Simulated scan of single mutants.
Amino acid sequence: MDDIGTELRRVHRRWRELPEAVAAENASLLRDLAQHLADATRAATGREPLGIPDLGTAALLDQLTVMVYDARRAGLDEQVLPGLTRLRRSLP
């Protein structure tokens, strides 16, 4: 498995370990990275930025996973891995 896949699995595992209240307090960390990747992906493909919808805390991990996939498809691995690593390290 590649480094990005490994780091994404680590984020998934850590996020799922958090109590619901703690996850809610830290939701902005996931949302910010997902939005950053969405913006970078749209810029790389020549499209205007578009905000990701707020679907609540329960959907954030899925939204981040989709944004990681899209960013990788756009060739942005150099932004994805450090972003995931920073995110994981910043989670309580």
Rank of each mutant, 00 (worst) to 15 (best):
L29S: 07
V11H: 03
Q63A: 12
D77H: 04
D39Q: 08
A59C: 07
R73V: 11
Q79F: 12
M1H: 07
V66G: 03
V66A: 12
H12R: 14
V11P: 04
L76P: 04
D62T: 13
G75R: 04
L37Q: 02
Q63T: 15
H36W: 05
P53I: 04
R73T: 09
V80C: 10
A38E: 13
L84C: 02
R31S: 14
L61P: 10
M1F: 09
D39W: 07
A40T: 07
M1S: 11
E7W: 01
E17D: 05
E20F: 03
R42G: 00
A27F: 04
A58V: 13
L76V: 03
T57A: 01
L61G: 13
R31F: 14
D32G: 11
P49W: 08
L37Y: 02
D2Q: 05
A44G: 08
E25P: 00
P92M: 11
G5N: 14
S90W: 00
A24F: 03
I4C: 08
A43E: 15
A24V: 14
M1E: 03
G75E: 04
A21Y: 06
H12F: 12
R31V: 12
D32P: 02
L50N: 08
A27T: 12
P53N: 08
R42F: 01
V11Q: 05
V80Y: 09
A44P: 05
G51A: 15
V66Q: 06
P82I: 03
D62W: 03
L87T: 09
G5H: 06
R86W: 10
S28Q: 11
P53Q: 12
E48G: 03
D54N: 15
E78M: 04
A38N: 15
D39P: 02
A74Y: 06
L30Q: 06
I4N: 08
V68I: 06
H12D: 13
S28L: 11
R47G: 07
A21G: 10
E48C: 03
T45P: 01
P53G: 11
E25F: 03
L81N: 11
H36P: 00
A74F: 10
L84I: 07
H12V: 10
E17Y: 00
A21I: 11
R89A: 15
L91R: 14
Q35M: 10
R9Q: 14
R88T: 04
N26V: 02
L37F: 02
L55Y: 11
E17S: 11
E20G: 03
E17A: 09
L29A: 12
I4L: 06
E78P: 00
L30E: 00
A58D: 14
R72A: 01
M1V: 13
P19D: 15
R13F: 11
R9L: 14
T57F: 00
L37M: 03
E7C: 08
G83D: 01
R16W: 02
L55S: 10
T41K: 01
R10K: 14
V11R: 03
T41C: 02
E17C: 09
A44W: 07
A43M: 13
A59I: 03
E48I: 10
P82L: 05
L87M: 11
T6M: 09
L37K: 01
V66M: 07
A21K: 11
G46V: 13
D2T: 15
A44S: 10
E78R: 13
R89E: 15
A59T: 10
A34H: 08
